[in-house]
Amino acid sequence: MEQLARLGRIGIGTLERLGRGHVLLLHMLAGFAALSVRPKLLIAQIHSVGVLSMLIITVSGLFVGMVLALQGYYILSQFGAEETLGVMVAASLVRELGPVVTGLLFAGRAGSALTAEIGLMKATEQLSGLEMMAVDPIKRILTPRFMAGLISMPLLAALFSAIGVIGGHFVGVGLLGVDDGAYWSQMQAKIDLHEDIYNGVIKSLVFGFVCTWIALFQGHDCTPTSEGVSRATTRTVVHSALAVLCLDFVLTALMFGED
């Protein structure tokens, strides 16, 4: 009986959290209009969420592209199809690895920072202080960060893919001797704007939305103590990573499942 009650409590707790998360989301979305009046707030956040994540995205993209070329070359050369290395690298990056790895890195780099920042603002009564100054902390603090996440994520994913293609070129063409012209022309011919690129952009938009939402909610909903903030930060990374991987499966099934 005790076990059953515990299960019930966990269920109710989860539902309550989900409810609070959605209320927060609506509240943040309601602040979008006000943001157009204060573009400076948004620009500052795009800098801290997006621009400051560029280094890790660039370096990771480069290495992922290089590894893809190495592995791809090994398999493709067994069938004498090394010329298609460019397509393989670009398609893997644009369709899957770009959005997914960027999403994971984004959660680790920007998401955890957002949670810690909002959580500490709550713990030090800064959010409460804003409320008492008649300033809505959700619209003033959370909405610009949410918007910045939405804008930054697809751009970061695009950067990741672009750098990855260059990394692949460096290894494939530079080191393994694949023909330079074949690398680019095959890629141009086979990568489809709608099928590959748009779908990749949609994925990265969805991941950006979910990761930023999770990060901001965890920060806003945390217990305002140092332990609470640390737990919330961990939860952000874990939940975001799981959400990105699960959603990637769902989106891939929807986008490419019928082919």
Binding site: T124, E125, E131, M133, A134
Partner: peptide, 13 residues
């Protein structure tokens, strides 16, 4: 609230 000021224990700056 614009007509109320509040001083938090931590300052809340």
């Amino acid at each position: 609230r614009m007509r109320m000021g509040m001083l938090f224990q931590s300052g809340a700056l």
